[in-house]
Simulated assay, not measured.
Amino acid sequence: MTASRIQAFLDDLRDRHADHFAIVSRLREIVLQFGPAVSEEIKYGGILFSSRAAFCGVFPYAGHVTLELSGGASLPDRHGVLQGQGTLRRHIKLFAVTDIEDRHVAEYVELARQSADA
């Protein structure tokens, strides 16, 4: 059932906002490359990713897509791209697929996954 909900979410996003669909699809590829222990589910209006614990989520908004990092406040921010002031989470706003590489998203996703698995 989860796979069909994810596919329905992606199909709807593709139909409504092709640019956001491209960003979300690329983010999914990056997160899921970390192996079969990573699971995904539709939650809070986006896709939440977990391994031992939830570590990130991808959420489309009207003007951008946000990558939320569950324990982002404790992650090193070598590239100065993390935003937010909460006690736990940080996020990265993405406006185009090129932002994913420019903002070193894969590095932050890996740090978040390692932190959640510790």
Rank of each mutant, 00 (worst) to 15 (best):
L10D: 05
D11M: 06
D11A: 14
D11L: 13
D12I: 01
D12C: 09
R16H: 09
H17L: 04
F21P: 04
A22R: 11
I23L: 13
L27A: 05
L27K: 09
L27M: 09
E29N: 09
V31H: 06
L32Y: 01
F34V: 00
F34A: 07
F34T: 02
G35P: 08
P36T: 11
S39H: 11
E41V: 13
K43I: 01
K43M: 00
Y44V: 04
G46A: 01
G46V: 01
F49Y: 12
S51L: 00
A53G: 06
F55P: 03
C56F: 02
C56H: 03
V58K: 00
V58L: 04
V58T: 02
P60W: 01
P60T: 06
Y61I: 00
Y61A: 14
G63V: 10
V65P: 03
T66R: 15
S70F: 14
P76R: 14
P76D: 12
D77M: 08
D77V: 06
R78E: 14
R78P: 08
R78V: 02
G80D: 10
V81G: 12
L82D: 03
L82W: 07
L82P: 12
Q83Y: 05
G86T: 15
G86L: 13
T87S: 15
R89A: 13
R89E: 00
